[in-house]
């Protein structure tokens, strides 16, 4: 023996499921080493908690029309201890709208991100691994999807389907998967040529096993990177679409709040307490997404640090 091995305690073989969860957890924990990413993750965490406990945090129903003690409509009130952020011109509680808007934003953001991750990762894996006409077909589809302009597409989609937040999820999924797929594909192209992939083949592993057991774990952090970007994009898109008036009229979101403030001329009345908070929230979530992706990038491509 060229070198002696010091003995290590035998660890019981982990089960298949826990191994998968560990891989996922490792991929998700990647950005934890970057200060920017920690800030981003903290912002996400705060918004996530707000969304989860919206029912307890919000003092009123966001669409309820409120009245003052003297029986008059509680419209355009400034912030007070009763209405933390004041009320809208229809007498609705802005603070409660902001809290419920967080929930709407996160539902859109997270589902869109998951959809983008799943579609983009699968397409990238299949395209890069199999190559040939499958690759050509999928990449030409990606080119087409990339050439579609974002907001007009969502508006057209709203015209064909009923106005709903799911349109936005659908549109983000349809238009954003190509970015993920292309990057994953290029990564698969390099992993595919590694000798251990060949080794798996020569010992009899099938394509499915090679793809999901040997190749996929190596590109998972990239999926998360593009997923975190998609969260911000989806929330931003939802806000834009709602602001333009094509959003779901029954869902209170930050974009809905901005649109409501805009049409009731809150700016000219100086009701900053109405439209500034949702604006700040949108900025924070989008910025958090880019901070997290920055963390992934630095860990995935260490050369960026120089």
């Amino acid at each position: 023996m060229p070198a002696s091995l010091e003995s290590t305690a035998a660890v019981p073989a982990p089960s298949r499921r826990s191994r998968f969860l560990r891989t996922l957890a490792r991929a998700a924990a990647v950005p934890g080493r970057d200060p920017f990413a920690i800030v981003g993750l903290t912002i996400y965490l705060v918004f996530l908690l707000v969304a989860l406990f919206a029912d307890h945090l919000a003092s009123r129903d966001p669409l309820e029309i409120l009245f003052q003690a003297n029986g008059r409509l509680a419209r355009n009130l400034p912030p007070s201890s009763d209405f933390l952020l004041g009320t809208t011109h229809l007498g609705r509680d802005i603070y409660s709208q902001l809290i419920y808007g967080t929930r709407a934003a996160l539902i859109v953001g997270v589902t869109a991100a998951i959809a983008v991750m799943i579609i983009g990762t699968l397409v990238g894996l299949v395209s890069g691994y199999f190559g040939g006409w499958i690759d050509s077909l999928l990449m030409r589809l990606a080119d087409i999807a990339l050439s579609i302009p974002f907001l007009p597409f969502v508006i057209v989609l709203t015209a064909f389907l009923r106005p709903s937040t799911w349109n936005i999820v659908l549109a983000v999924a349809i238009l954003l998967w190509p970015n993920t797929a292309r990057v994953i594909r290029s990564q698969v192209l390099t992993v595919r040529e590694r000798a251990y992939v060949e080794a798996a083949r020569v010992t009899g592993a099938g394509n499915g096993r090679i793809l999901f057991v040997h190749v996929a774990p190596n590109i998972l952090p990239l999926s998360f990177l593009y997923g975190s970007i998609a969260i911000g994009w989806a929330i931003l898109t939802e806000a834009s679409v709602s602001f333009l008036g094509f959003g779901d009229p029954d869902v209170v979101s930050w974009g809905y709040m901005l649109q409501d403030a805009f049409v009731s001329q809150a700016l000219s009345r100086g009701s900053y307490h109405w439209f500034v908070p949702p604006g700040i929230c949108i900025v924070l979530v989008v910025v958090a997404g880019f901070f997290v992706s920055r963390g992934y990038e630095e860990v995935l491509f260490p050369k960026l640090r120089d």
Partner: peptide, 15 residues
């Protein structure tokens, strides 16, 4: 079976 040239690349680093 096959024995590879580069043992550093022939084993999956995650296995």
């Amino acid at each position: 079976q096959l024995v590879f040239q580069n043992p550093f690349d022939a084993l999956n680093p995650r296995f």
